[in-house]
């Protein structure tokens, strides 16, 4: 996905608090180029040790193994600090990557944010 100028869209679409949870909305195409930025964002968000981190992938159009590795890194960090990482809104394309990498049972997956927060 590109912005109005044809540049690749930022992958970090929005960050907000929802009760005690932090919700991180991602968008666009997450590849090796964006993984570092995303890793830094996870580190920043998890510094405050929130009890729940919801990562919405509803607007993510592409994710490669670099993106997957970044999510796995975040999951490991969450487990260390006692934070629940919940992943929502997998598009078919992203779900395919999760399936190929056999990660569906590793993450807590939800259809949407409301379900993850309930």
């Amino acid at each position: 996905m590109t912005d109005d100028h044809g540049h690749p869209q930022d992958v970090i679409k929005n960050v907000r608090r929802q009760g005690k949870a932090v919700v991180l909305e991602l968008a666009g195409e997450i590849d090796m180029h964006h993984s570092m930025e995303l890793r830094d964002k996870f580190m920043e968000l998890l510094k405050n040790k929130p009890p729940v981190l919801v990562v919405s992938l509803a607007h993510v159009e592409f994710m490669d193994s670099s993106g997957v590795a970044t999510l796995v890194g975040a999951l490991k960090l969450c487990r260390r600090i006692g934070c629940q990482l919940k992943v929502t809104g997998l598009t078919e394309r992203v779900r395919n990557v999760f399936e190929i990498c056999r990660l569906e049972s590793v993450f807590q997956l939800y259809d949407n944010e409301a379900e993850a927060l309930s």
């Binding site: 193994s65 997957v68 590795a69 796995v72 490991k76 190929i100 990498c101 990660l103 590793v106």
Partner: peptide, 18 residues
């Protein structure tokens, strides 16, 4: 070997799968 929580090693696996 796919390691659930490994940070690498998925690239060639994906290529071979596809």
């Amino acid at each position: 070997q796919l390691d659930e929580l490994g940070l690498g090693g998925r690239g060639v696996h994906i290529i071979r799968s596809v």
